[in-house]
């Protein structure tokens, strides 16, 4: 089968987030960018399906600026076979919204007809947690969001997914959309030989406007601010003090 994996270039998860002084947005100038951690998990899962000979071809897709090609190269170095880069300069944490990305993925899917779409459950910039679910909705396909275990058996996908308070097992028909949660796998690091090999893999570039879709945001981000600061309290020396302070303030 053919697998689509969507990957996004985001602020690196270890970078401190700074809001611009004019409260217009988060400052993304000169900060380290990486593949969104949940997309890494999605990519790893797709590559594992290929290693298990379940998937014949893994196609990594990204929607983003020119520089997002680096993220696609990372996916190719992890083991994806080829890449599709839909190029747009829309700001990817506020202007390029999940509905638009889902429409792009649906349009690409209509050309390539993958059997399975694997996405991260959310990106760590916009934190919307929507794109996979929306793609499934547009395609009228089944969704397994927050997957922690995936196996394919003929034309059925067995998924264990995270639900509130525990786990749920479901079976889906194909084509299906799966979004990756934290425990699905531990993504590999791309090795140097694989990074070299990835340079030769093909990336198709498509201008977003050539897809003939409306990608205009439906939601305007009118301001972005720092969260309220929580004041540090006191340091105490002993367990007795902890207990007496809690009793003083009526917590215990």
């Amino acid at each position: 089968m053919k697998v689509f994996v969507a990957v996004k270039r985001t602020l690196d998860y270890a970078v401190k987030v700074r809001v611009k002084a004019d409260k217009s947005a988060v400052d993304l100038a000169n900060v380290k960018m990486s593949m969104n951690p949940f997309c890494e998990i999605a990519c790893e899962e797709a590559v594992r399906l290929k290693e298990k000979k379940v998937a014949k071809e893994v196609i990594a897709v990204t929607v983003g600026p020119k520089a997002a090609q680096e993220t696609l190269r990372t996916a190719l170095a992890m083991g994806a076979d080829r890449g599709i880069h839909v190029v747009t300069d829309m700001r990817h944490d506020t202007e390029l919204q999940p509905l638009a990305v889902a429409k792009v993925l649906q349009a690409l899917g209509a050309k390539e007809s993958p059997d399975m779409y694997i996405l991260g459950k959310q990106s760590i910039d916009g934190d919307n947690n929507q794109t996979g679910q929306m793609l499934a909705g547009l395609m009228d396909a089944p969704i397994a969001a927050f997957a922690s275990e995936v196996s394919v058996d003929g034309d059925k996908v067995h998924v264990t997914r995270e639900i509130d308070g525990g786990l749920q097992k479901i079976d889906l028909g194909l084509p299906a959309v799966v979004t990756a949660d934290l425990r699905l796998n531990e993504p590999r690091y791309a090795t140097l030989p694989n990074i070299m090999k990835a340079k030769k893999k093909k990336i198709e570039e498509i201008k977003a406007e050539d897809l003939g879709l409306s990608l205009e945001p439906h939601v305007q981000y009118t301001s972005v601010e720092d969260p309220p600061v929580r004041q540090a309290g006191i340091k105490v020396e002993s367990v007795d003090e902890v207990i007496s302070k809690l009793k003083e303030t009526g917590v215990l």
Partner: peptide
């Protein structure tokens, strides 16, 4: 904004051509 809500809301958004607001 539970796992159920997060699973269902975006799908409805796609069906209605609406961009939901999370959290």
């Amino acid at each position: 904004a539970s796992n159920d809500g997060k699973n269902i809301m975006p799908r409805l958004g796609a069906k209605l051509d609406v961009q939901p607001v999370s959290d």
